[in-house]
């Protein structure tokens, strides 16, 4: 597994396909913090949402690195398609974790906030970035070349899903009461936003963990489904 992750990272670097998503993320962060001071929790909530979108992009590009024949050979050498796809997802997660560190440290290092970041706020914001990155990876898996042969369908479907996920709160407000539950099917990319904006950041007990738990469950289920379906599509 470790060797395949290393192989994928090495291949990704050589391909230069990392450049568009990662540079876009850097630009987004730099532009977002153009002016200071900024509110801590709200700013981190927004940069986590950026990371959600960028993670889907990263995941699509990492999963499209190997040609179908190369993918078959790797699965044969590994003896398991499950290990192959898991290694690919972990590769993206590793890159997303590095971007999380950047998104977290950049405003602190360059004094972009109105106040200092307390451990409670820092911890919750960091976890929120990681969770949304994993959610993005899970969502992108379903729209990758592994699952969809048509690139138009894949990109179109992914963009629509991302837009719907981000607009979920607004959609929920305009839907009739009996249809509101449909929103729960969408990736919960903004479910923690409301919690974070209302949170004063004094202590870890002042925030509900259910939205975070829901992201974990949702991401876990779709990642598991991806691994099962990808294995069947061999």
């Amino acid at each position: 597994m470790k060797d395949l992750i290393q192989y994928s990272l090495h291949d990704y670097v050589r391909s230069h396909k990392y450049f568009p998503p990662i540079s876009t993320f850097f630009v987004l962060i730099l532009v977002f913090y153009t002016y200071k001071p900024n509110p801590i929790i709200d700013s981190y909530a927004i940069t986590a949402l950026f990371l959600f979108v960028i993670s889907t992009w990263l995941c699509l590009s990492v999963l499209s690195l190997d040609s179908p024949v190369q993918r078959q050979l790797m699965i044969l050498h590994l003896g398991s398609s499950y290990r192959y796809y898991l290694a690919k997802l972990l590769t993206v997660a590793l890159i997303a974790a590095l971007l999380t560190v950047f998104a977290f440290l950049y405003p602190i290092i360059f004094n972009m906030f109105s106040d200092s970041v307390s451990p409670a706020v820092g911890f919750i914001s960091f976890v929120n970035h990681l969770l949304l990155a994993v959610l993005g990876i899970g969502v992108a898996g379903f729209f990758s070349k592994v699952m969809m042969e048509s690139a138009i369908n894949a990109y179109g479907g992914l963009v629509l899903t991302i837009i719907l996920s981000i607009a979920a709160l607004g959609i929920e407000n305009i839907l009739p009461a009996s249809f509101k539950y449909i929103v729960w099917l969408l990736p919960p990319a903004t479910i923690t936003q409301r919690q974070l904006i209302q949170w004063k950041g004094e202590s870890l007990s002042g925030i509900s963990y259910l939205p975070f738990l829901w992201i974990m469950i949702y991401a876990g289920v779709i990642l598991l489904l991806f691994l099962i379906l990808a294995k069947r599509r061999r």
Binding site: Y7, R14, V69, Q72, L78
Partner: peptide, 29 residues
């Protein structure tokens, strides 16, 4: 877990590794 080697009809030609690097990865895997 039978060790199976497979040479496809068309081996991927767009690999970005040198033969040495690629074979090292395959061996380690």
């Amino acid at each position: 877990n039978m060790r199976t080697g497979y040479v496809p009809e068309r081996f991927p030609k767009y690999l970005r590794f040198t033969p040495d690097e690629y074979l090292h990865y395959i061996g380690k895997i």
